[in-house]
């Protein structure tokens, strides 16, 4: 019944493929086309302008600000998030007094750290806006309360602090998820490996470096891809939380925000599509590099 089986498989796949082509692939393809036009978003016709929209990107100061900020986020957000995620996960597994066990109350911490993941990004941004309020926010309030009033700042309004403040929120909201991801990966590491290491006299740091890290490498790589994509976005947090938004003076501008503003405020859908296509290729390149980069090194098999 081989024949019938193929018919069944094709019958099962084709509807999904058609939907995928119609609602996923065709919008992509048409965004490419639109990026070569001057479409306003409401006009009945669009004129072909060739590569004009892409040429403009290079002279758009705000877009260049956005590229710079996204680049900074692309480096900082994954490194910090993964660093903290790995630290928390290993403390929950091996941080206890007797190695092989997590710190006391590990299960409780695991749930608490995961909380931010349950909040929508919009709520996270609004809450942190309150935290950062220069006059009665939690952060400055705490600093003043412990006698460090001199460190109190206008976090979101100072050019050299605003982007760091935004990245802190992104890290805060995503670290719980990666902690759980790495925790699960560490659960899969056989305990005997650690026992052997302890017998050999390995300390906490070398156990982590020589056993834990190599064995969760695949998860870390996936985390890099996810966080890289998240760092190239950042739209929701920036749009809600920052001054301007995107300010002060472009210091927290991100590509998504420039795209949104050009499309929906300025009525330049063609130009915005060009930004979208640029972002698409940037994301693609980064994903490829992150996934290929890890492959070159030797794999550790358990």
């Amino acid at each position: 019944m081989k024949h019938g089986r193929y018919r069944f498989i094709i019958g099962a796949l084709v509807p999904a493929l058609i939907l995928h082509a119609l609602f996923v692939l065709s919008p992509y393809a048409q965004a490419f086309y639109l990026s070569l036009t001057d479409w306003t978003g409401v006009a009945g016709n669009a004129h072909f302008v060739g590569w004009g929209n892409y040429a403009r990107l290079g002279g758009d100061a705000l877009f260049l600000d956005a590229l710079r900020n996204n680049a900074v986020m692309l480096v900082a957000v994954p490194v910090v998030t993964i660093g903290i995620g790995l630290f928390l996960a290993s403390m929950l597994h091996l941080g206890g007094r007797r190695s092989l066990h997590g710190v006391r109350g590990a299960a409780f911490y695991k749930i608490v750290y995961f909380f931010p993941q349950l909040l929508s990004l919009a709520i996270v941004a609004v809450l942190w806006q309150f935290v950062y309020n220069p006059n009665n926010g939690l952060l400055n309030g705490t600093l003043r309360g412990v006698g460090l009033g001199g460190l109190a700042r206008s976090w979101l309004a100072e050019p050299n602090l605003a982007l760091a403040a935004v990245m802190t929120v992104i890290v805060w909201s995503s670290v719980g998820f990666y902690m759980v991801l790495f925790s699960a990966a560490m659960d899969a590491i056989p305990k005997e490996l650690y026992e052997a290491a302890i017998i050999d006299g390995a300390g906490g740091w070398s156990t982590f470096r020589r056993i834990t890290l190599p064995l969760v490498r695949d998860n870390v790589r996936v985390a890099f891809v996810y966080l890289g994509i998240a760092a190239l976005d950042g739209f929701a947090i920036v749009q809600i939380m920052t001054v301007g938004p995107g300010g002060p003076d472009g210091h927290t501008e991100v590509i998504g925000l420039s795209l949104y503003r050009n499309a929906f405020t300025y009525g330049k859908f063609g130009y915005a599509s060009a930004m979208g296509v640029t972002l698409f290729f940037l994301t693609l390149v980064i994903a490829v590099f992150a996934l290929r980069g890890g492959r070159a090194t030797d794999r550790v098999e358990v």
Binding site: F23, S26, P27, Y28, A29, Q30, A31, Y33, L34, T37, W39, G41, A43, G44, N45, A46, S120, L121, A122, A125, V126, F235, A236, Q239, I240, G256, L259, Y260, A263, F264, F269, A272, S273, G276
Partner: peptide, 28 residues
Amino acid sequence: VPASRRAVLSAAVAVAATPVLAGCVTSS
């Protein structure tokens, strides 16, 4: 009322999906 994640997505979808209307873009 801040833009929600959904608004972000719908913005992205709108930018991506506008060409679905491209039939109207070129032929009204």
